[in-house]
Simulated assay, not measured.
Amino acid sequence: MRKIRLTRANKSILMKALGAYYYQRRAINADNKEVGSLILKIDSLPADKKAIFSIEEIRLMRITTNRLRNERLAKGQYTDAADDMLLKLF
């Protein structure tokens, strides 16, 4: 378990990253319970408050945020917000 402070920008990045991952897994009929519950948990949290996340939740946030960052880099888009979120997770 680890406490992480989520700003509005970081919540937005996480929701975008997790949402894309959720719908990708849904398209191939994979189990999405873990992703869906994490999306609901993050959405219900107030901004700028510390929240406790399990190791598995943090791992999933890292994977999806890094995937979003790499997609943006491949397109030549701005990635500072995703980089900031990844730093908070490490």
Score class of each variant (00 low, 15 high):
residue 1 M to C: 08
residue 2 R to T: 10
residue 3 K to I: 09
residue 3 K to G: 07
residue 4 I to H: 03
residue 4 I to K: 05
residue 5 R to E: 14
residue 5 R to P: 11
residue 6 L to F: 04
residue 7 T to G: 11
residue 7 T to R: 06
residue 8 R to E: 12
residue 8 R to Q: 13
residue 9 A to T: 13
residue 9 A to G: 12
residue 12 S to F: 14
residue 13 I to L: 08
residue 13 I to R: 10
residue 17 A to Y: 04
residue 17 A to L: 03
residue 20 A to P: 04
residue 24 Q to I: 06
residue 24 Q to Y: 10
residue 29 N to A: 07
residue 30 A to F: 09
residue 31 D to Q: 02
residue 31 D to V: 04
residue 32 N to I: 15
residue 34 E to S: 06
residue 37 S to W: 07
residue 37 S to P: 02
residue 38 L to F: 00
residue 41 K to D: 03
residue 44 S to M: 03
residue 45 L to K: 01
residue 47 A to F: 05
residue 47 A to S: 09
residue 47 A to H: 06
residue 48 D to W: 07
residue 48 D to G: 02
residue 48 D to H: 05
residue 49 K to M: 02
residue 52 I to Q: 07
residue 54 S to I: 03
residue 55 I to F: 05
residue 55 I to K: 09
residue 55 I to H: 06
residue 56 E to T: 06
residue 58 I to D: 00
residue 58 I to S: 01
residue 58 I to P: 02
residue 60 L to M: 04
residue 63 I to F: 10
residue 63 I to K: 00
residue 64 T to A: 08
residue 65 T to F: 09
residue 66 N to D: 13
residue 68 L to Q: 10
residue 70 N to K: 06
residue 70 N to L: 10
residue 72 R to Q: 12
residue 72 R to P: 08
residue 72 R to E: 13
residue 75 K to G: 05
residue 76 G to Q: 09
residue 78 Y to M: 13
residue 79 T to C: 14
residue 80 D to G: 15
residue 82 A to D: 14
residue 82 A to R: 11
residue 84 D to N: 15
residue 86 L to T: 13
residue 86 L to Y: 11
residue 87 L to W: 15
residue 89 L to W: 07
residue 90 F to C: 12
